[in-house]
Design a protein around this nucleic acid. Structure first.
Length: 280
DNA sequence: CCTTAGACCTGGAGGC
DNA sequence: TGCCTCCAGGTCTAAG
């Protein structure tokens, strides 16, 4: 579900309620939630810690504690939010897999229908950016437009199409399936173009467009297609500005040609067959 | 090293 | 109403 703007929206919503709060106790019913600690150790290590700082890298949330970094990846449908009391609706309640009780009586909840979301708990390094999982990530496109020469070089010896390259977090971080379609449309590039055939100018146009789209989406608190909420009842607003994603058959906003849906590497891709020509 | 299919999960939507 | 199939904002793994 969430891409960089949605993750940033979640993080922004957590900062105020979590700042300097202490963990009193932890309830967790999902042994696989924390990928690098047993359930018992995970809960025990969290207890007594205070939330001290908050960061995002790509689609990762980084919650800094006194002695640990808690990394959270929401994957497709994970939600992380603070409430006075979690919902009593059993349909929601059954998907809350972690409750962290805070010293002000409020509760940090992790809710995830599909149980794809994952957390890691690591001892705090000197700098949070040294965390092993984050070392794998390419430059973050929400944060800045990366160096285009370097990006081109990273694609040079790869045999993959540009749509797939945009989704590879090692090459560039923060883009997901929605914004990949949007930025390719904005830049007028066909998703199946071999990534290593794009010119510097094309890549520049693509990443500039992508950065602007991610920033604009963040300003709207993200995109809500199915289920995204930064906090309960707070949906994003960017879905109203999507140009192509989810709009199969509707007229291209630029030329009026019906938009099409195709699969690239098992994932849906939306494009305008007229504005985004293959060949070259 | 790189690429690709399958796995991980659940629920909603649409066809019959 | 019920059953079946397909689909979903992501990423890891196993195998070629």
């Amino acid at each position: 579900m969430p891409e960089a703007p949605e993750v940033q929206s979640v993080l922004d919503a957590l900062k105020e309620p979590l700042q300097d709060r202490q963990v009193q106790s932890v309830e967790c019913d999902h042994p696989k939630l924390c990928a690098n600690e047993s359930l018992a150790d995970f809960a025990a290590l969290l207890c007594g810690q205070h939330f001290r700082a908050f960061h995002r890298a790509g689609k990762w949330l980084v919650l800094e504690l006194d002695q640990y970094e808690l990394l959270v990846h929401l994957r497709m449908e994970g939600k992380l939010y603070v409430v006075d009391e979690p919902s009593e609706d059993p349909k929601i309640r059954k998907h809350i897999h972690l409750i962290v009780h805070l010293d002000d009586g409020r509760q940090l909840c992790f809710q995830d229908v599909r149980k794809f979301g994952r957390m890691y708990l690591y001892p705090k390094p000197e700098n949070w950016r040294e965390l092993p999982v984050l070392q794998q990530l390419g430059p973050d496109l929400l944060e800045a437009v990366p160096d285009i020469q370097a990006f081109k070089a990273s694609l040079a010896r790869r045999k993959l199409v540009i749509k797939q390259a945009l989704l590879d977090q090692k090459l560039i971080a923060g883009i997901g399936n929605i914004y990949a379609s949007e930025m390719l449309f904005e830049a007028g590039i066909h998703p199946d173009t071999p990534a290593n055939t794009l010119s510097l100018e094309q890549l520049e146009r693509l990443l500039q467009a992508g950065h602007a789209i991610l920033q604009r989406s963040l300003a709207n608190k993200g995109t809500t297609i199915r289920s995204f909420e930064s906090t309960p009842d707070h949906t994003g607003g960017y879905q109203n500005q999507l140009q192509v994603y989810g709009r199969k058959g509707q007229p291209c906003p630029r030329c009026g040609t019906p938009l099409v849906l195709e699969k690239t590497g098992q994932r849906s891709t939306y494009l305008c067959p007229n504005c985004q020509k293959l060949s070259d």
